[in-house]
Write a protein that binds this DNA or RNA. Structure first.
Lengths: 226, 226
DNA sequence: TCTGGACTATATCAATTGATACAGTCGAGC
DNA sequence: GCTCGACTGTATCAATTGATATAGTCCAGA
C-alpha cells in the first residue's frame, strides 16, 4: 500500500510495494479457490475478483493459471515447513542417536499433534491442507514438488519414529511404514472428510476443546503402538 | 445388444434392451469420469465418447449432467451396500445382544476388512470409492444422499463395535466415535492417497499379498483398541 | 516537469462445454 | 408394408473461461 513500485529486492521485509501487495492478495485468493474447487473448477475471474485485481493481473504476475497454481503449491510447502519446523527438527535430531520407545512416542505425539493442528485448524492452514490433499488425489502439476518437499519427508520421519516406538532398531519394517501411513491418514478425518466427521460427531464446528480431545485420541493411538 | 427396444419392465434380469445397455454403458463411463476428475472437470463429451453414445443420449437417459451424477451416486450406494452386506448384517445382529470385547473385535476386523477390500481394490469398487470420497470433500449435490445411505450407517456401526471393544456397555463415548473415525479414515491411505502411499512404500501396485499385509496392520490396530 | 517503467482497466478472441432442436433410423406389432 | 414409439446422429446455440492486445494511469527520479 506504500513505498516504491520498483522490483528492487526488498531487504526490509516490512515495506512492500503496491505490486507485491497485489501479488500477495492474488496468491491468497488463488489458494482459497484452488483448495475449495480444485484446479479445473476454480476460475481465474473468481480469483481476480476475490483478490481485487483484474484478469490480466494474473498473467502479469504469474504467467497464467498454471503458473499461479504452482506458485500456490510452492508457497504452501514453504509455509507448512515453517509451521512444522520445531517438532520436526527436534525429532530428527533425536533420531540421530539411540532413542527409547517412550521418547519416540513423545516425539511422535509432538509431530503428529502439530500436524493435526495444521490439518484441522480453520485458519490459513486449513486452506493449505485442502489444496495439498486435493493435489495428492488428483496428481496434478504440483504433485511431484509437494511429494518431495512435504509428504515424503513427513512420512519418512513418522515411519522412523514409529519403528523406534515398536522397538525396531535399524531400518523400519514394512509394518512400521504401514502404521505410519494409517496414523497420518487417520488425521485427515477432520480435514478432507470434515463435513462427514463433524456431522457424525454431532458437532457444528471444531473448537479448542474438541481439538484437544482429538489430539488426545491420537496420543492414545500412539501409546498403543508396539 | 438384443431383444426389444421397449421400456417394459424386465422381469428377466438377463435380457436387456438396447436402451438399457446404452444406459448402463453411460453410467459406467460417467462413474469413471466423475471419479477421476470430479463433477465440474468431467465433460459430457468425454463420457459420451467413452460410452460409445452421442451427446444427446446423456440428456435422453439422465436429463443432463447433474442427473447423470446423481444416478451415479445412487448406483454406487447400492453397489456398496450389496458388497458390504454380509459382514455388516452379521455385526448388526451381534450388536443386538450382549457382545464381548473379543467378539466385537472380530466383527470389526470383518467389517473394516471388507471395507478395505472395497477401498483399495482396483476393480470397479476403486472407482466407486474415488467418486464417493470426492463427494465427501466437495459436498456436491449427492452429499446428503451418500451421507445418509453410506457413511452414517457405516460410521454408526463401526462406532458401536469400537465401543464394545473398549468395554463400553451402552451409548458409545466420544472417544469411541473418534477412534472409529480415525480407524475408517486410516483406510483411505491406499485409496484417496494411493499415489502417495504407494510411492512411499516403494510399491508400484497393490497385489494380493500386500493387501493382506495391510489388512493385518489394520487388525493389529483393532487389537490395540481398549 | 517530464520521462520511463511498473502496474491496471477495457474490450475482445478463441476454445470448451452443457444443452438442445430436429431430422433421421430401427424394429415390433398390426 | 405401414405405423408408432424408442432411440440415435448432425448441427448448432449460448454461456463460460483462459488468455491477451492495447491503451491507459501512477509514481519515483532526473
Amino acid at each position: 500500500m506504500t513505498a516504491s513500485p520498483s522490483t528492487a529486492p526488498q531487504t526490509d521485509g516490512v515495506t512492500i510495494s503496491r505490486g507485491e501487495a497485489a501479488r500477495h492478495r492474488i496468491l491468497s485468493a488463488a489458494m482459497e479457490a484452488f483448495a475449495e474447487r480444485g484446479f479445473k473448477a476454480a476460475t481465474t475471474r473468481q480469483i481476480a475478483e476475490a483478490a481485487g485485481v483484474n484478469l490480466p493481473a494474473l498473467k502479469y504476475y504469474f504467467g497464467g493459471k498454471q503458473g499461479l497454481y504452482l506458485a500456490c503449491a510452492d508457497e504452501i510447502a514453504r509455509r507448512y515447513e515453517a509451521r512444522m519446523n520445531a517438532p520436526v527438527t527436534a525429532a530428527a535430531e533425536a533420531l540421530e542417536g539411540p532413542l527409547s520407545a517412550p521418547e519416540a512416542r513423545r516425539h511422535l505425539k509432538a509431530v503428529l499433534g502439530a500436524l493435526a493442528e495444521q490439518l484441522m485448524g480453520d485458519g490459513d492452514a486449513g486452506v493449505w491442507t485442502a489444496f495439498a490433499l486435493r493435489e495428492m488425489a488428483d496428481q496434478g502439476p504440483a504433485f511431484d514438488m509437494l511429494y518431495a518437499q512435504l509428504w515424503a519427508p513427513g512420512i519418512e520421519l513418522t515411519t522412523a519414529l514409529v519403528a523406534r516406538a515398536m522397538g525396531e532398531p535399524a531400518a523400519p519394517s514394512e509394518a512400521a511404514r504401514l502404521r505410519a501411513l494409517t496414523l497420518i491418514t487417520g488425521l485427515t478425518a477432520f480435514s478432507v472428510a470434515r463435513p462427514v466427521a463433524l456431522r457424525s460427531m454431532g458437532w457444528s464446528e471444531l473448537d479448542a476443546g474438541r481439538l484437544a480431545r482429538i489430539r488426545q485420541a491420537i496420543a492414545d493411538q500412539i501409546d498403543a503402538i508396539g
